[in-house]
Write a protein that binds this DNA or RNA. Structure first.
Lengths: 216, 216
DNA sequence: GCTATCCGATAGCGTCACTATCTATGATGG
DNA sequence: CCATCATAGATAGTGACGCTATCGGATAGC
């Protein structure tokens, strides 16, 4: 197919497709003549993946380029690819280097030890967890880590178990990593929405159909 | 204190503080003379909240303004404020209006019915859930909704239960909604990081300390 | 008085994700 | 064969965003 049909089938405008090709998100079509290129189903698939990562995952174009490069590099392990994906989802380093951050780092390490998780101390996700906990601390919400953190961790374990099982369906390396990226990035979006819905439900049950206490 | 000290105590530059004031994220200091203003602890607190929402939550300045306006409006219910917050976290409307979206909407409604959640069908979180599920579908990952969705939902329920309990500690309306916003926005960041760590652990356990299958 | 700091206002900057325009060429239908 | 349309590739422009820089005056505190 030519670029017009690719555009129609994916809902992405032709100039945007050209832009993605320039940015390395999409391989160029095969030139049949100096100004004609053919695209196939792999382009449709890739374009849908790119749009999903942008629209639902909120990844930047540069982040997607990095992730796709990792996906296509047979030398990268699944862990490496997923690490790349998560690093681009997680917010960048945040907040000052204060006491709250030290406390948060300790909380993170203790949690990992408590649950017996086999993760390196220098895993980037440990840092982003500590950043988030530090933010709670700075806002005077230190109780969060005490009362809620382990419940969150328990829930995360259950989810991770099905995530790993989901990826294990695949056989070929490229399918494994693609599954892992999609599951991680889109799974976050699903989880966020479900949490919100469950909050609404829990709140409705706790306070009648109405409202939490509004003591002015 | 004057703006210089506010800047030092929060790590936010003076021009940026002025910018936030202009954008309505931070109330102006109290003028003691035409070119002198005083700031107090409430400004420190607010500025830390703003930075946490930006750095950790990834919210835009405009989104934060909307959320803070809702927080400060005594007429808004907690549900409304939290809805405003979630709407700004969730990715904007994504993807074409195709068959995948119809299927996804049905999956979302069925899930809600299955779990007996008391939520309106037109809750924005239902839409963002459907968007995410539709993206799975378009990528040929329809199995996700079949094999993983209920586990996610179960986990979300457990988390939401502690979220509601956490907020219930507060008494005054403004503290309730602030707690809810912080818990929702920063809680997402915590949960995302924990999921990633739990995935690493689960993967390490399933495939030795090494790797998922890399059948080339 | 002197220097550092401040206020308020305006203008500018760098990044990002497109979008528009242009030239030259090729495809397609009657 | 020719008119019309689509296309490739290149370059420049756009609008939103989150700051950042600069300026003209005024004030604080020694």
């Amino acid at each position: 197919m030519r670029v017009g049909e690719l555009s129609r089938r994916t809902g992405v405008s032709v100039p945007t497709i050209k832009y993605y090709v320039r940015e390395g998100l999409l391989p160029a079509g095969e030139l049949s003549s100096p100004n004609q290129a053919r695209y196939d189903e792999s382009h449709v698939r890739r374009l849908r993946l790119v749009r999903a990562l942008i629209d639902v995952g909120g990844l930047s174009v540069a982040a997607i380029r990095d992730v796709l490069e990792a996906v296509e590099d047979p030398d990268r392990s699944v862990h490496e690819v997923l690490g790349a994906a998560h690093d681009h989802i997680a917010p960048r380093e945040g907040g000052p280097d204060d006491a709250a951050r030290d406390t948060a780092r300790r909380q993170a390490r203790e949690l990992i030890a408590r649950r017996g998780w086999l993760v390196d101390d220098d895993n980037p996700a440990v840092r982003s967890l500590a950043d988030a906990l530090a933010a709670f601390g700075r806002l005077g919400h230190d109780r969060f880590a005490e009362v809620s953190l382990d419940v969150y961790a328990e829930a995360a374990e259950r989810i991770a178990a099905v995530d790993v099982a989901y990826v294990a369906r695949e056989v070929a390396r490229e399918d494994v990593v693609e599954s892992a990226v999609v599951g991680t990035v889109l799974g976050d979006a699903v989880l966020t929405s479900l949490r919100r819905l469950a909050q609404v439900d829990a709140s409705a049950r706790a306070y009648g159909t109405g409202e939490p206490p509004a003591t002015a």
